[in-house]
Each structure stands twice: as C-alpha cells, then as structure tokens.
Amino acid sequence: MRRWLLLLLALAAPVAAAAAPNPAADRAAFQGWFRHLFPQLPLAKYVDGPYNFSASERAQWQQIMELPPYGFAVDHGKALFDARFPDGAGYASCFPHGGIGIAQDYPQFDPKTGRVVTLPIAINRCRVAHGLPKLKLTTGDLADIDAYMVRTSRGHKIDVVVPDTKPALAAYEAGKEYFYSRRGQLNFSCASCHLQYPGHRVRGDTLAPALGITASFPIYRSKWGNMGTLVRRFIGCNKNIRSAPDKPDSLAYRDLEYFLTAMSNGLPIAGPGARP
C-alpha cells in the first residue's frame, strides 16, 4: 500500500508542482511503478499482458498462438483494406506509408477538430472522406481492417505524440483523469485493477498490467468468438464495474486511449492479440 501511495505522489507531484501536464514525466513514473512491482520483467514483455504471471496460462496461450484465431480477421481485413472505394481510392490513400506499419503512431491529436483520433476512428474518417458510411467502432469489418493494419505494424515501437499545445494537453489530461477516477457501483477506476493489482486474479482471470495493455489490440477474445477493438474492451470493463459505458466514439474513450497508449511509448506493437 505504501508503494501505491508513492506512485500516486509521483504521478501527482509534477502536476502539483508545475501545475502543467507533463506526459514525459507521467510516463517515467508510470513505467517506474511497474518496474518497481516486477523488477525482473523486461519492458517489452508487458505486451504479453496476463501471460507474464502464470506458466499454465502462458502455455495455453502459446498453444492458441500456434495458428492464432485472429488469422481469419487479418485475412478479411486485408481484403477490405485492398478493395477500391466506389471513387477509385482505397484506405491506403488516407494514411502515410499507404497505411502499412503505422499503428504505433496512433492515437493522434488532430488540431483541426481539437479531438483525439484513434486508428479505428481514422479508418472511419477515411470512409467518410470518400463518401462511405462509418463502420461500427467495436467489432466487425472495422476491427478486421484494424487487425490487418496493426499486424503490419507488429514490433514497431509505440510512439504516441502529445503536442505541447493547450488542447492536446487538455485531451491527455482528460484521459489521465478518466483512468484514475473511480466510477460505477463497484467504485473501481481503471487503475484499481490494472495499476494496483496486475497479476492478481479476478475470479478465473488474471489482471493485465495497464502498461502495454493497448499493444495487443484489437484482440480475438475466445469469449466473443470474434475481434474487438480497444473501445469494445473499455465498454466491457465499464459494464464489469457496473458503470454506464460511454459511446464508442465518445471523447472520453478517445482521451483514455490517448493517455493509456502514451504511457506505453517505447513498447512494441504486439497486436492483433488473443485473449480468453
């Protein structure tokens, strides 16, 4: 518990002292906390999430990964990604490097709209720009396209940029606020489970550390039987703690994804992932 207080102080201190958001200092404290919890665990291993804490679960996961269950989604996502829009363009035209190997740069802050843009939202923006309707942000075709784009980025180090501007820092701060705020009938924050108790069990499940948790998304969850984006998981987590979930494209979830991913800068993209 004392360690926990130390972390809170560490995270709070720069804010209190400078009264200005400092993502770099937050990240150092965030990653420092996990190093303190698990001194033996190399930083890059955090992307394996819950599988760092149980040999049996790791063995089951490795068997599943022999021919990963998201294989169909990646193939389907590639077919969708490569298909032409009615106007002759394609997804590749909307992204730098033709959309290949760029997932580590998301979410981004868009100064024009003053909003955070996650990779799934960027995919939808591309569709709208070419006269197509938006896709569901949680699962289905969009999650499959996301899976393909993330697959081409595997191993690339997460590099979320928080520009030193008021609106960008405000979005970052809002995400941080969300992460640490308790909510729902169970009165849990994201941090209650994923920062305070990583590696512990919630009934049959092992809690993943918040550090590196975004790196494996989108994931194929055996429970779902298909792919889900990070937002789908946010909604599920909120329901678990008996809290009303936000809308998939809400600012709340965009900002949360922004903060959470920025905390994992330097870790490799490991998605798409497979989870129970």
Partner: peptide, 8 residues
C-alpha cells in the same frame, strides 16, 4: 469441439 476449431 471449440468454435473456429484448431487442430494439428
């Protein structure tokens, strides 16, 4: 046998 079966 599980959904989307794996077999080797």
């Amino acid at each position: 046998v599980s959904r989307n079966p794996f077999f080797s």
